[in-house]
């Protein structure tokens, strides 16, 4: 056993220990130079935050989440994070958990309470701990929109099937719901519009037009049960086309109202674009709505989805900032 071999063993062990220690510290984001301090925030629930997620202050990364534990009482979740010592703490600081990007990674943001006073923050039992609130997952929104699209797609596939009175009524109620949703959307927009004074007029005009179109579509569908003549159908379809046209225009208007609304607008646009396609396909058939549906169940399902969307929209109306402050797209 030569001495150099022994030395080599030592070198390999040392190299490995150094790699593991510094590699781990580096990947954890610990900088040895800057001194760090520990903060604790309490939450009612913590969404999908995990140890290692970034902590931000005014958008600047200042540390990482270290540990998440459920309080022994079971009422609170404690999140411990290490942040740079020189991070300025607002007087009435709160912690908000929110998605950092669309890909499931979350962040903890430290912010003054008066920026988002409407949130129901969890109350800490220790005065040194920050009250915290976790924002509902944005995926709820996108998932609902997706489902609507999928349902309408199924509808369009079912063209070519006998059209009963029952399905006619279902379609009528579908249109009914679309109308209502549109209305809620427009209400929401008019609420939000306050923040975007430049486009208020346009939006109000747009929503009004949608309202009118929807109303006329609704009138048409009230007659579906009574008469299924070709002429009537042609008129209904025309009306529907107008609805779609208007909603699209509405989306376009929304699009201009600023980046924060763009996401919602895009989703509304795609949903309504599909309605448009559906209508085009109905028209491309032999002009009979009888080809629209195979079974009433699908219309029911669409309705269920629409109801969910309504609930969501209600939530948006109640807590608009919760959704709108996130610049997702």
């Amino acid at each position: 056993m030569s001495r150099s071999k022994e030395a080599l063993v030592g070198v390999v062990i040392l190299a490995s220990v150094i790699v593991v220690t510094f590699g781990t510290l580096w990947l954890q984001g610990v900088t040895l130079a800057a001194t760090e301090t520990e903060i604790t925030a309490v939450f009612a629930n913590v969404g999908v935050i995990r140890p290692g997620n970034p902590v931000k202050y005014r958008g600047v990364r200042v540390g990482r989440v270290r540990e998440i534990t459920v309080d022994p009482g079971g009422e609170l979740v404690r999140v411990v994070a290490r942040i740079q010592e020189d991070t300025p703490m607002p007087a009435d600081a709160v912690a908000i958990l929110a998605p950092e990007s669309l890909f499931g990674d979350w962040q903890l943001e430290i912010t003054p309470r008066d920026r988002f006073p409407e949130y129901r923050y969890a109350q800490p039992d220790d005065p040194d701990h920050l009250p915290g609130y976790a924002i509902p997952d944005i995926s709820q929104l996108t998932a609902t929109a997706d489902r609507i699209s999928a349902d309408i797609e199924i509808l369009t596939e079912r063209v070519g099937i006998a059209f009963s009175e029952e399905t006619a009524r279902n379609v009528a109620s579908l249109i009914d719901n679309v109308e209502e949703v549109t209305q809620r959307l427009s209400e929401l927009v008019s609420q939000q519009a306050g923040a975007f004074t430049d486009v208020t007029g346009e939006i109000q005009e747009a929503t009004q037009r949608i309202g009118e179109a929807a109303a006329s579509a609704r009138m048409s569908f009230d007659q579906v049960g009574e008469t299924l003549s070709r002429e009537e159908l042609a008129r209904i379809l025309e009306d529907l086309a107008v609805v779609a046209e208007n909603t699209r225009e509405f989306s376009g208007d929304l699009d201009e109202t600023g980046s924060e609304l763009r996401g919602m607008a895009a989703r509304a646009d795609s949903t309504f674009a599909r309605v448009n396609v559906l209508l085009a396909q109905v028209e491309a058939g032999d002009g009979t709505l009888g080809r629209l549906l195979q079974d009433p169940a699908i219309a029911m399902e669409v309705e269920g989805t629409l109801q969910e969307l309504q609930l969501l929209l209600e939530d948006i109306r109640e807590n608009p900032r919760r959704y709108l402050r996130l610049s997702i797209f």
Binding site: V20, Q28, P51, G52, D105
Partner: peptide
């Protein structure tokens, strides 16, 4: 990307 989902446990697990 490397740091995004990194947990110190990953290293422990590997070792």
């Amino acid at each position: 990307g490397l740091t995004l989902f990194f947990l110190p446990f990953d290293v422990t697990y590997a070792l």
